[in-house]
């Protein structure tokens, strides 16, 4: 479980099946912007497990942490991500 403001990193992954972790956000560091509670969990529901649910969070990523020098230099991207996609990241 994560709390508002926690630093997190998305897992490095390349699943063959369905996931709602966008490729461009795999392995990226961000911060929990909102705790969404429990939502239907798409990765398992896509396999026919209709009742699958998991805690989800809105995570904010600074553009530089996603694109390096190759994106909009200022600002951020927010995405809604499930607990399984995330691991804790120590404050630096």
């Amino acid at each position: 479980m994560f709390a508002l403001g926690d630093r997190v990193r998305t897992r490095i992954a390349n699943p063959a099946g369905h996931t709602r972790l966008p490729r461009y956000l795999s392995g990226r560091a961000g911060r929990v912007d909102a705790v969404l509670g429990t939502l239907p969990y798409p990765d398992r529901r896509a396999e026919g497990i209709v009742s699958a649910r998991e805690t989800a969070y809105t995570v904010r990523f600074e553009n530089a942490d996603v694109w390096g020098p190759d994106g909009e230099p200022r600002g951020s991207i927010c995405a809604d991500l499930f607990e399984s996609y995330l691991e804790p990241l120590e404050e630096q």
């Binding site: 099946g17 369905h18 239907p40 798409p42 529901r45 896509a46 026919g48 209709v50």
Partner: peptide, 11 residues
């Protein structure tokens, strides 16, 4: 089917 199964089928 569910929306997730549909998205997976499109993908």
């Amino acid at each position: 089917y569910t929306l997730d199964e549909f998205r997976a089928a499109v993908e």
